[in-house]
Design a protein around this nucleic acid. Structure first.
Lengths: 211, 211
DNA sequence: GCAAACAAACCAACTAGTCGGTCTTTGCAT
DNA sequence: ATGCAAAGACCGACTAGTTGGTTTGTTTGC
């Protein structure tokens, strides 16, 4: 197996430290010490401490956005798309928890040139979700009285908040959590008609038996 | 009308600056300058910059906890309690938005002696919500297959996330947002039976007509 | 007279970033 | 293959600037 590069070691260490102590609670010296690197090595790989923070942000948001777009492409009915997006979104919290914590706690400290790039991708992600909800309403699968924005932000908020309480080795697996979220969301957004149809669909049954 | 005390002026300024630039993005000197105070005046009112941060946290969490407990006492059916708590919770975002932003972005930087006190109140708040959900399930108003913790955290997350997108002068009033949240939540947690009962209750009708 | 507040100089600690230098790998001409 | 020079990776002592907090003395208003 390949050795980890210095850059990877620095990122891993920084991620761990930022998650626990916050961006400003961790000095470059400490990152360097705990990753068995040096000041020179650090600045050889990163222009600045800011750039390291940006890098962490970018890895996460790029991944999430890709997953959402992928889920959108792989399914065609709004309900299925919504489920797939939420499911992949929730699963990210298992592998990327430190990234996410940093993403939501420290984004204030991103310099403008960096935060702009991040915000573009973040907005794109939001638009995918809004789009699915809009299509769901148009298709008659989702309740017409829903507000696209508030419903979208409710879903995003509910899922995002997971980073505050999810424990990778806790009593709930990430898959179980995802199923509960989807159950919660579907009960809210589906029309009565769509709910009845769902009960007979293979897609829904595959989920239900997992609870 | 009474003049604002120096302490209040400092807090207001700090709140505004912390919200925008983050705790570490604002120096004591800047707070002092922009609140037309002096360093002496600052340290006369606060032991340290940390204590100021704690104070901001405490004002907010104390208020929210009181409101939740009040709502719990004022109502007796689980469904009504849940609605009342969510409604008062959401409304807080209108008046306390800067507090909340600081609360969720900067809590990492609270010193242990402070964060412990804050966490106690925060946990107490969570327990009120969990309790209501538990009682709702027991009373047969809420779906028995719900997980108390995940449902509770879903609601808290959904509402808390509001601080990331709510604009006090935006197109949606806080009351409208609250109604959408409650609508979303009730569709998720209520049993079919409870939903039908609700449609005839004065409590529910008063809400419905506001959408 | 006394507490609240001001002014400003001062300090010690800390921290992001630099810079001259070393070691290792790579590429290329012989 | 071998020698060798250039490039790149990495080191760590050092610096320049910042920042929370202190001190000392003064002013204001109840």
């Amino acid at each position: 197996m390949a050795e980890k590069t210095l850059k990877e070691r620095i990122i891993d260490t920084a991620l761990r430290l930022f998650e626990q102590y916050g961006y400003h609670g961790v000095t470059v010296d400490r990152i360097v010490t705990e990753s068995n690197a040096s000041k020179g090595g650090f600045y050889h790989n990163f222009k600045s401490k800011d750039e390291l923070l940006y890098h962490i942000h970018d890895v996460f948001i790029t991944y999430v956005l890709n997953k959402a777009q992928e889920a959108y492409k792989n399914y065609h009915k709004p309900t299925e798309r919504l489920c797939a997006i939420v499911q992949s979104f929730v699963k990210v919290f298992h592998l990327y928890k430190p990234h996410i914590t940093v993403f939501y706690q420290e984004s204030t400290y991103l310099r403008p040139e960096y935060s702009q790039k991040i915000n573009e991708k973040r907005d794109e992600f939001k638009q995918v979700i809004f789009q699915v909800i809009r299509e769901g309403i148009e298709a008659g699968e989702f309740r017409p009285e829903l507000s696209v924005e508030i419903t979208g932000m409710s879903i995003i908020g509910m899922v995002n908040w997971t980073y505050k309480w999810y424990k990778p080795n806790g009593p709930m697996t990430i898959e179980q959590i995802a199923i509960h979220f989807i159950d919660f969301i579907l009960h809210s957004v589906l029309t009565e008609e769509a709910k009845k149809k769902m009960e007979n669909s293979a897609f829904f049954l595959a989920h239900k038996q997992m609870i």
